[in-house]
Design a binder for these strands. Structure first.
Lengths: 210, 210
DNA sequence: TGTACATCAGTGAACGCGCGTTCACTGATGTAC
DNA sequence: TGTACATCAGTGAACGCGCGTTCACTGATGTAC
């Protein structure tokens, strides 16, 4: 595997897919050094290209980071959707998969996770990013709707609140115990088990039988 | 308020309290630009001192950051301890205060919070830091013990697990909705209310009456 | 099918800048006698 | 109380370095005819 172009065949003057490769570079570098630890020049070097080349594709480092965050939310939405699997066979099974997918995303995609949640990229400033980010949450929201719909009509909690609760607990466990970097706290059990237990207790508190 | 020494009286050749002032500088700069957005030189400038001066007090930027994290955990422990107030008048009252203290800490001390949880400072590498960080968690742990002790002996959940659950949900809400920077998600209610509702549901799921 | 041309996506040299770090130094403070 | 000296905590100049950014350029590719 050559340093210059990493096995995508010899390249001539044109790179061919620099935009994609810069995103890959960013992910790799964020993983290694944290969301603030990579530079535009770094990314160019990683892609085997002159330091001026990235300017053909991104205005600056921030725009690259924002793009990474967007792709991250996109991928995240898909992962959550697949995991939820329309709530089959039972919502609690599906919730278990959903939580596991969240934790796995944090573990396996540290570059995306950091760009999405800890890079300081302002979500609110760019409508497109905001929309994509919201879509991830809509997955949770839809799941909560289905869960709540199984309860007797009297005393149903608001689905939005339930979705936010699930999000919070999952995000808390992911950020503390399932992250890939040195800030991870040790845990005397699997993060999945901690989350599953918490979810069960929470559901029970809502009045749902298992 | 002069730029040079910010109202702590005129100073001569010696600064008097540079170590403390560098910590203050770090907090201020982290708050403004994020945990990775400040430099050693920045901190020196903020304190009104030559760029070589910080080296008398800290080996490098990382050591300063670690020191900030330590102080952060120290302060955090105290805040949690005060808020818990030995669980009086009732544990659920006390838990409510505990959660609010956590959220307020995230909001009011963004510099400390970021240094503690999002700066990439490796907790495990320095025993002293680890010990201080653990102490914060022990506050939650002790609170969980008291809560669990109120339950009938049969079917008591492990206090450790309960403490981890409380930590996770509080941390999740703090990190998503009560942070002070641009990565904060909007929330259609007070973060405190979301947390309180979640805690109540969780406690109910554990079999505790309000 | 060939050719001329426009456009695109890269180069590489150059620049100013701020950072980290070292160094011999010096002003201020504390202490022994 | 005064003096000599050691120590401490700063200075400021200097250095090498890598980053961000611009620029005129050039090689490769696509397209009109």
């Amino acid at each position: 595997m050559s340093w210059k172009h990493r096995g995508r065949g010899p390249r001539g003057y044109h790179h061919g897919d620099l935009r994609e490769d810069l995103v890959r570079a960013a992910l790799e570098l964020i993983k290694e050094k944290g969301p603030a630890g990579f530079t535009f020049a770094d990314a160019a070097r990683w892609a085997g290209v002159s330091p001026a080349a990235p300017y053909r594709h991104f205005r600056d480092r921030d725009q690259l980071l924002t793009d990474v965050a967007k792709r991250g939310f996109q991928l995240f939405s898909e992962r959550l959707r697949e995991a939820w699997g329309e709530g089959k066979p039972t919502p609690s099974e599906a919730f278990k998969r959903l939580g596991a997918a969240y934790l796995n995303f944090a573990r396996q995609e540290p570059g995306y996770y950091a760009a999405m949640f800890e890079s300081g990229v302002p979500i609110g400033d760019e409508p497109e990013l905001r929309e994509i980010a919201d879509r991830s949450f809509q997955q949770l929201r839809a799941a909560a709707e289905i869960l709540v719909a199984r309860m007797p009509e009297k005393g149903r909690p608001p689905a939005l609140m339930v979705a936010l609760h699930i999000w919070s607990m999952t995000h808390g466990i992911a950020s503390l115990f399932a992250r890939a970097d040195a800030a991870r706290r040790t845990l005397p059990m699997r993060a999945e088990d901690l989350l599953e237990a918490q979810t069960l207790i929470y559901f029970k508190g809502l009045g749902l039988e298992p």
